[in-house]
Nucleic acid binder design. Structure first.
Lengths: 199, 199
DNA sequence: TCTGACTACTCAGATTCTTGACTATGGAGG
DNA sequence: CCTCCATAGTCAAGAATCTGAGTAGTCAGA
């Protein structure tokens, strides 16, 4: 029962269709909640039948009709209840970390490759988040915006997401480099294990 | 199908009972995988019937018997397969971030309290992880251990966990402080600041 | 005209995770 | 004696999530 609140929180920024949320979940809200389109559609239906969001059919021509949703007063009240209730501890789940944990027992090469790939993904995400932050604060500087802005929630969560992605990138690069050095030392185990990585 | 690999990776460090894993999952592996005891017991049974781990009954007196598990060759092969397969992108799910995202629409006070509590939890976790890192590297310094150590996987994942907890702590404290400043500004509007709606 | 991509959404089924029990023994504290 | 706590697990039900497919119209390109 928490995707529900992530959706409500996302809808505080305006009126969105399920499809739009499904796209946008990758950028903003996905920093702290990940969901597939099917889940979003299902959750929106449940939220609507519970009266926490209101949907309205938008007839389009040239493309399928869509349903736009906004949070109702009951929805805000539900968020209020949720915000005041004790939070469950967060958790990360990451395949790649499992692989690094196991790296001493398995072939390191594919793990190194995945670390480099993940570093690139994290860098791309960090860039997107950086742009989003600039867009959110407009022409104010950060401190000013945070004190005076009337919608700072998304900004704060994006800050956290950005720090996370940067940290991820740094760690992935450091770790990949280290594992590579160990690999080449292993392949040439003499006293002069100083040669660069071959390829 | 990935708790399975987290368990296998954890068992690379030695022989453990389900109970021990359930306790220990909080410190080491929990940085990237979170699981309840029931899941671990169930997963260990499945792993055993799939031949990926081997269990042995240890008769104790004064306390219940237990079953200790270790990874089999087939288990290592399975980890090898897993490590070489493409990793799914990681995800975070965090109630508290949802609350911060929604903070403009709800009462900020309980969110501030939870941010402070989370900061304290993160600090405690960071301390535990720092100790674990020192224990893992023994009397070597970090660079030396990472190049020469024969079991560095857990060290690397702990590094990542430590950075994450520190980042979490910093962000929580910054965010709590900011929200507090805004709260007190809202309660005592200086100059000609326009009044917001009451609590 | 056929293929594929994009918008917009729905359904069914399987797997995974969480909640909340329950069994059983031994020791500490009141 | 009774209760609480720790060890060491097991079971069952339900919620949440993921996999995979289907529907249906529009538009662009080969």
């Amino acid at each position: 029962m928490a995707l529900r609140h992530a959706v409500l929180a996302a809808l505080l920024d305006g009126e969105f269709s399920g499809y739009q949320l499904a796209k946008g979940f990758d950028i903003g809200v996905a920093n702290f909640w990940h969901a597939l389109p099917q889940q979003l559609y299902a959750e929106l239906s449940r939220l609507e039948s519970d009266g926490l969001v209101a949907g309205r059919e938008v007839v389009q021509d040239g493309r399928p009709n869509k349903r736009m949703f906004r949070v109702t007063d009951a929805g805000v009240a539900e968020l209020e209840r949720f915000a005041a209730a004790p939070a469950k501890p967060s958790f990360i789940r990451d395949d790649l970390l499992v692989k690094v944990q196991a790296v001493d027992g398995v072939d390191a090469a594919p793990v190194i490759a995945q670390l480099q790939e993940r570093a690139a993904v994290a860098e791309a995400k960090a860039e997107v988040l950086g742009k989003l932050l600039r867009r959110l604060r407009g022409d104010l500087d950060e401190a000013e915006f945070l004190l005076a802005g009337q919608r700072i929630g998304p900004y704060l969560t994006c800050q956290r997401g950005l720090a996370f992605e940067r940290e991820t990138r740094e760690w992935c690069l450091r770790t990949a480099e280290l594992l590579e050095r160990r690999e080449s030392a292993r392949r040439a185990p003499s006293g002069s294990a100083r040669r660069g990585q071959g390829g």
